[in-house]
Each structure stands twice: as structure tokens, then as C-alpha cells.
């Protein structure tokens, strides 16, 4: 069966009732690639793209609330550097017009650019159930293992919240790919600095999950970003990540790039220090 509810509440109802027997589809930019490669869906399909309010961006209580169906094309327009740049680096316009933040988080690819940027922003994800209501999880607690997340079989991703966009001082993004556009990252990095001085740093393609470099972050807290500290942080990031060798890149390279990118995004935070984000 193919379901195409026109409200998100109806979608939640269907998901709660059918659990694993129904597969949500948003932009289809992950799901249909698999379908075209011969992986049958095997289950009923729950199309979320007709649901009203699934593509909204709202401001509430000093937070920015993104509906799950917010596309990369919408994210590109945001005034949050790391998220906008990450979104702009996803596929081509055709993919950005369809691909959604919920799809990115649900797929939970270690190379998920949206996921990495949101991790650095210390975002929270809302997992919703028709009867149990919703639960908010920090993204750092959401990604569990390779393509495994806290998302339940009977839940949908309803929203993502960036807790304090007004408290955000600066953010930065860097992605290394093999060509000038439409890249799966070899390594990507995002960093954010909040007004309270907190710095978050996240990497993609260097671990089974999009990862926060918590150890490195610890080094940075409350310290002025001197050259010496940047160097130390770069080394720490490189030591902290757990990349694998695959034919796209070796673990050595990825580790080395974490050091380079850590320094770059952190430096970027400094130069953008004065920038006031809305």
C-alpha cells in the first residue's frame, strides 16, 4: 500500500499502527536510489510530502524549529553558516530541492552533511509517536552505531531544534570531496561557537556515525583560541576520530584531514567572531 496523508498527525497515526511494516519516504533521495538498485521496498510506503506543515521553519522561544521535511534548498537560505554551507554542498539543486533533514538524520550515513552540521550546532531532534507523544533528544545521543539511531520503528522525525540560534556567535563548515560539486565527503567538519563561549566540533566520514569530537571540545572550553591551542586541538581531533580504510580514502588520510579541518573550522570561528547571527 501507498499512503499519502495530508497531515503529519495522520502520518504519525499510520506509523504508530504499522510500525516497521510501513516505510516513510520524504524526498526519496536515499530511498529511491536503493529501489533503483534493485532493493525492493518490501513494505508499505508512507509518503510524507503531502503533509501540511512538514516543510516549515519556525522561530519559537529563541529557538529555530525546522520541520522534518525541510529541504536542503530551504536550509541553504538560512543565516547559519555551517548549516547553510553544508546544505549547499549536498548533491545538485535537484537533490537539494527534494532531500530533507529528516531523511538525512534517519539514513544516518556517517557522511551525512546535514547531520554533521546539526551536531556541531548541538541540535535536538524530535521523535514523535501518535500516542506516546514526542521526545526530544540531543543529536549527540541520537546516533548510536553504524546507521543505527534512537528512532523507534513506530516513530517519525517531526522536528529539529537548534536550541539557541541567537546565542550562536559563529559557525563554520569544510568538506573535502574528489570534485567541485556533488560530493560524498572524504571528510567534513563543522564547528560552532556559542555566546557562552562553548565550542562544538563535529566530523563526518571518520567514524561509524556522524560524530562530535567531545574530547577535543573539552580542550577548547573557556580557552582563548591561540595558535598553540589550535595545534593541540587539531592533534586531539585526529586522535579522537575512528576512520576506516575504504576505497574512497584511507584511514590515515582521514585522520590527517581531521587535524587540518579542525584547525580550519576553528580558525574560521575566530575570524567570524564578531558576526551576529539572527
Amino acid at each position: 500500500m501507498f499512503y499519502r496523508p495530508d497531515t503529519f498527525a495522520a502520518a504519525l497515526r499510520l506509523k504508530a499502527d504499522h510500525a516497521a511494516a510501513i516505510k516513510p519516504i520524504s524526498g526519496g533521495t536515499d530511498l529511491v536510489v536503493g529501489l533503483n538498485r534493485g532493493q525492493s521496498l518490501g513494505v508499505d510506503v508512507l509518503d510524507l510530502t503531502a503533509a501540511k506543515d512538514y516543510r516549515r521553519i519556525d522561530h519559537a522561544d529563541g529557538s529555530l524549529i525546522l520541520s522534518g521535511g525541510t529541504t536542503f534548498a530551504q536550509l541553504e537560505q538560512l543565516d547559519i553558516a555551517c548549516l547553510a554551507r553544508a546544505a549547499a554542498s549536498v548533491g545538485g539543486p535537484q537533490i537539494r530541492n527534494r532531500g530533507t533533514i529528516a531523511g538525512n538524520l534517519a539514513t544516518a550515513s556517517p557522511a551525512g552533511d546535514g547531520s554533521v552540521a546539526l551536531l556541531a550546532l548541538d541540535a535536538e531532534v524530535e521523535l514523535a509517536h501518535a500516542d506516546r507523544g514526542t521526545r526530544w533528544l540531543r543529536l549527540i545521543d541520537y546516533f548510536e552505531d553504524y546507521r543505527q539511531t534512537a528512532l523507534g520503528d513506530d516513530e517519525l522525525i517531526s522536528h529539529v531544534r537548534i536550541p539557541t540560534p541567537s546565542a550562536l556567535q559563529a559557525s563554520a563548515w569544510y568538506k573535502i570531496g574528489k570534485r567541485g560539486a556533488v560530493n560524498i565527503s572524504l571528510v567534513c567538519a563543522a564547528a560552532a561557537r556559542f555566546l557562552d563561549g562553548r565550542i562544538c566540533l563535529a566530523f563526518g566520514s571518520v567514524a561509524p556515525i556522524p560524530m562530535r569530537a567531545v574530547q577535543t571540545e573539552k580542550l577548547l572550553q573557556g580557552q582563548p583560541l591561540t595558535g598553540a591551542l589550535l595545534h593541540q586541538a587539531a592533534q586531539a581531533a585526529s586522535a579522537e576520530v575512528k576512520p576506516i580504510d575504504d576505497w574512497r580514502a584511507s584511514a590515515d588520510y582521514r585522520k590527517a584531514m581531521c587535524a587540518v579541518l579542525a584547525r580550519r573550522v576553528l580558525e574560521q570561528l575566530q575570524t567570524d567572531d564578531e558576526r551576529q547571527m539572527p
Binding site: 501507498f2 499519502r4 519516504i25 524526498g27 526519496g28 533521495t29 529511491v32 536510489v33 533503483n36 538498485r37 510506503v45 509518503d47 510530502t49 503531502a50 534548498a73 548533491g91 545538485g92 539543486p93 535537484q94 537533490i95 530541492n97 527534494r98 556533488v182
Partner: peptide, 30 residues
């Protein structure tokens, strides 16, 4: 390519260019 990489299948869906190879026909409903 049927993977969204090449754009040869680009059509407009409500005025936005999308890869028709990655969009289910049923999603064009309405």
C-alpha cells in the same frame, strides 16, 4: 544513472527541478 548524479531525468515538479528517477510517481499526486 538512476542515482540522482547526472540530472538527465530532470523535470519540474511544481516549478522546482527534481530528479524524476528519485521521485515516486505517486508522490506527484495532486
Amino acid at each position: 544513472c538512476l542515482e540522482g548524479e547526472c540530472g538527465s531525468c530532470t523535470v519540474h515538479l511544481d516549478d522546482a527541478p527534481v530528479c524524476s528517477c528519485l521521485t515516486l510517481a505517486a508522490q506527484a499526486h495532486g
